[in-house]
Design a protein around this nucleic acid. Structure first.
Lengths: 253, 253
DNA sequence: CCACTACTTCCACATAATGAAAACGTCTGC
DNA sequence: GCAGACGTTTTCATTATGTGGAAGTAGTGG
C-alpha cells in the first residue's frame, strides 16, 4: 500500500491503516518492516496511537492492533450515514425475494466499500463489511462510478488504475467510459467474472431526492447457478430496494 | 475533552476524536476554537486527514466530518472482537425473555463503551453503540471495573475521577472500592439512578475460559416500572446470556 | 460595496520528529 | 546457566518538519 502522506501525521495514519490489515495484530518490528520506516519512528508512532486509544497493545502476545477508539468513531460514522438500522431489513427482503446475496456499497475515494451484506441461502459472497473493492471490476463499483457527479466521475475515469483482477476485467479506459455511459442510460450495471472467477452480479444506484448518488445495491450469484440474464430478471425487486433506501438513508442534498 | 497528546500526531488524533462529536460536521474554525490550537495548525491537520480518507470535507456545506476510512477500520475492529454476528441474537433473546433492554459493553480505557443494544418494547435506553459512559456510575462500568485484572483494577480505583452524574452517584473512593469487592463476590452489579435519573440496571460479566474479562451485559429498565429488586429476578436469564457469550465471543487468553 | 465567514497559501523560526545505537527484558534451546 | 533471538524502551545530537502569524482568495448577505 502506497505511502499515506508525507508528514508525520500521514505516517501515523498509514500505520493505523496497516494495523487494519492485521486482524490478529502485528509486532512493532513487523510494522516497521512493512511501511519501511526506521524502527524507532514506528515505535514512537505506535506508543502515541496506544496512548490515545487508537491502537491497543497486547503485552502478552507482544502485538499491536487497532484500538477500541477506532470502533467507537466508526460507529459515529455509521450513524451519521444511516448504516445501522434502516438498511439491513431492506437487503434481507431483497435476498428473500430473489434468493441471491445482496450487498450495500458506498464509494470511498477510488474504491467501493462494502457496508452491509446479506448472503443468500446457497453460498457466501467474498467481501465483508469494511472491505474495499476496485471500481472498475465490480457491478457496484461501476454504478458508483457512473452516477458520481461529473467532476469526480471524469477525474476517476481519467486516473483510475485499471489493474485486471481476472481475464475478464476491463483494462481499456475507452471501454470503461463506454460502459459508464451505457450504465447511466439504463440505470444499472452488470458484471460477469470481472472481479472473481465464478461470480456474476448486477447493481443499481441509490439516489437522493436531488439525484445525488448515495450508495449502490448489488445482487450477486455464483456463475454455475445463474448468468447475467438470470440476474436481470431480478432487476425489478432490486430497484424496489434502491427506491426504498433512497428514502430511508439520510439525505445529504 | 483533555488534550490527546503532546506531539503533532496527538493533535491530529485529538481533532479526529473531536470530529466524532460533531455528527453533522464542523467548520475548520469551530474545530480550531474547540481544541484551542492556532487555526493554520488545525487547517493543516484537517487537510492531511482528508487526504488520507480519515476525514471528509463537504465543500457545499463547508463542513468537515469523519471519513469512511474510519468506518472501514471500525469494521475491522468489530470483526476482530466478534462484535457483529454472534452477539446480537443473544441480546435479543435476553430482551424477549425479560422484557427489558439489554446492552453489551466493553471497557475502553477508563470508560464503558456501548457495543450493541436491544431496546425493550416499552422504552429506549439513552446510550447508543459507540457511546462512552463512566465506569463508576453505571452497572456495566462497575462490572468492567470489578472484573478487570488486578493491576488495571487497582490503577483505575486509584485514579478514576469520580465526577457525579446524579445525586445518587458514588463520589467516595472508599465506597467504590467496597462495592467493587462485593460485586466480585456476588458476580453482578446493580445501579439505581446513579447515571440517569429514572433508570435502574443490573449487569454481569462475560468471562473467558481462563476467567479473563471480555465484556459486560446490562439489563436496564425505567424506575417507574421496576426497581432493583425486580431486576434481580432476571439475574438467571442474564447470566445465561453472559455464559453463552463467553463461548461465542472470540477468546483472547 | 463593505463586512463577514471560511478556506488557502506563504515563510522565517524553533520546536519537535528523526533514526542510529545501545540498554533492557524475556523467552528458547543447547 | 549461557548464548542468541526477539522485541521493547530510552537516549541524544542533528536537522528536517511542523509552527503560527499574517496576508490573500473566494463566496455570501445586508
Amino acid at each position: 500500500m502506497a505511502t499515506e502522506g508525507s508528514g508525520t501525521v500521514g505516517k501515523a495514519l498509514g500505520v493505523l491503516t496497516l494495523l487494519g490489515e492485521h486482524p490478529h495484530g502485528a509486532t512493532a518490528a513487523e510494522i516497521a518492516e512493512e511501511v519501511d520506516y526506521p524502527f524507532s519512528t514506528v515505535y514512537r508512532l505506535l506508543t502515541t496511537l496506544v496512548r490515545t486509544g487508537f491502537a491497543a497493545y497486547d503485552a502478552r502476545e507482544k502485538r499491536y492492533q487497532l484500538g477500541l477508539r477506532v470502533y467507537q468513531l466508526g460507529q459515529k460514522v455509521a450513524s451519521a450515514h444511516g448504516f445501522e438500522g434502516a438498511a439491513l431489513p431492506v437487503l434481507q427482503r431483497l435476498t428473500e425475494v430473489t434468493g441471491e446475496s445482496s450487498v450495500l456499497h458506498v464509494r470511498d475515494g477510488d474504491h467501493s466499500l462494502t457496508v452491509h451484506k446479506v448472503d443468500g441461502p446457497q453460498f457466501r459472497t467474498t467481501t465483508d463489511p469494511g472491505d474495499l473493492s476496485p471500481l472498475h471490476t465490480t457491478a457496484s463499483g461501476k454504478v458508483l462510478l457512473a452516477f458520481a457527479d461529473r467532476a469526480t466521475r471524469e477525474h476517476l475515469l481519467a486516473t483510475l488504475e485499471l489493474t485486471p483482477r481476472t481475464e475478464h476485467s476491463i483494462t481499456d479506459r475507452e471501454e470503461l467510459a463506454r460502459q459508464v455511459e451505457q450504465i447511466r442510460a439504463q440505470g444499472w450495471a452488470g458484471q460477469s467474472e470481472e472481479n472473481d472467477i465464478g461470480m456474476v452480479a448486477v447493481a443499481a444506484p441509490v439516489l437522493s431526492g436531488s439525484n445525488r448518488l448515495i450508495a449502490a445495491v448489488t445482487l450477486a450469484a455464483p456463475k454455475f447457478r445463474a448468468d447475467l440474464e438470470d440476474l436481470r430478471r431480478h432487476l425489478a425487486p432490486l430497484q424496489d430496494a434502491t427506491a426504498e433506501l433512497s428514502v430511508k438513508l439520510p439525505q445529504r442534498p
